[in-house]
Design a protein around this nucleic acid. Sequence first.
DNA 1: TAGATTGTTAATCGATTAACAATC
DNA 2: TAGATTGTTAATCGATTAACAATC
Lengths: 241, 241
Amino acid sequence: MPPVSVESAAERGIPDAAVARLPGYLRALDTMTASGIASVSSEELAVEAGVSSAKLRKDLSHLGSYGVRGVGYDVSHLRYEISRALGLTHDWPVVIVGMGNLGRALAQYGGFEQQGFSVVALLDHDPEVVGQRVGDLVVQPMTVLPALTGSGVVIGVIAAPAQAAQDVADALVGAGIGSILNFAPSAVNVPDGVQVRRVDLASELQILAYHEQRRVESAESGAPADGTAASASARTVGVAR
Amino acid sequence: MPPVSVESAAERGIPDAAVARLPGYLRALDTMTASGIASVSSEELAVEAGVSSAKLRKDLSHLGSYGVRGVGYDVSHLRYEISRALGLTHDWPVVIVGMGNLGRALAQYGGFEQQGFSVVALLDHDPEVVGQRVGDLVVQPMTVLPALTGSGVVIGVIAAPAQAAQDVADALVGAGIGSILNFAPSAVNVPDGVQVRRVDLASELQILAYHEQRRVESAESGAPADGTAASASARTVGVAR
DNA sequence: TAGATTGTTAATCGATTAACAATC
DNA sequence: TAGATTGTTAATCGATTAACAATC
């Protein structure tokens, strides 16, 4: 039997829940770098990132062993290792499709560049919109997609309306895009192997509404209610005297 | 011992993971309503929402028992029950703080209104921005916050830059806001009982980058690699001949 | 060495899945 | 009734947490 290759923790893959928290650790380390902090304990970094120190150490253990017992972590070295684990040792070119309000805002957002991404193309289906200037780029037609993927673009952002989202996703996948960030308020179907993450503003608000409603309900059953939502807000929780 | 009140599933609380999927079911039901479909099976609805039918039925079981064995679910009734569980039987007024690119895009997004929310106020810290018109509203100063919460606003959206996010959060919480949707690329600390959900565009892209990187790595070890990211994209995965 | 803090273990908890009895 | 599909159960899986041995 040929020897099976021994995989490191990183090669075996990091649990999804841990991957989702790594960007937060990166951001916390950047904040600390800006404050001139060179070394941190798991406890300090956990507070800055808003997690427990046990969870932080467990998450970092999936990348390797980059701390020093009794001392802590070197900020810049840990930052590098997390960047590397996330694949951010080089910039990723990104294409945004759909130049409505949201697409234009994303195109000019600027927050991507400093985080390891560069918006290299803006596309729109509408001939009226093609040719317009948005920020530093000129909007191009959908037909340029294959050329973009040919030159190495693998991440696409859908900022089109819900009814167009599936068509855009099909076009992206057809051209060879492997990862999609979907801002349209609808689910899109893609073949296995293509990654889709969805950012849905209305869903996020609905989840908050659920918790606000529970607050109102518990106030109504547990305490004299006056029927207004405001009465159940945080500042009024407590024992009346 | 006095009898303990018997709580229904809804009163006991719906698991977080299930709550997070309810908006997707709602959206799928709306799509079906628009197509004139009056009744669905868990299998059909699950496909539309992009989950397994077992998960869908399990999730719905937390709300109560609104299906008919052998038949399925009445689309409009199920829609109503999910709306009710999420607290969407009335509109929730929302305040957006921060009128940069993103805040303006959110203010004019329109997607909130149809989903049970109405943007009732836009605030900004900058006196130059206060008084400007954005969509149908005029930007107001931060000082109006207490008046807004007094009139029943309990949900706030932070669209301010990272360095201002904590100050905005403090102002929101201080005025009595109970739920916050944070678009700033930083974590904010709030007292227990205040809900915060964060939408971080760069984090989402970083998570996609992780998966793209793994794709490249596995292509390099498992197949002859040519060193370009494009070679590892979905369309080229497979056995060369 | 004594004190501090990591990395890991094991226990607990919550979420997912498959299967099927209940029942329309 | 026969066929279909729900709602629930039990098994599995993955994530979280607390505790502590390893070790700087």
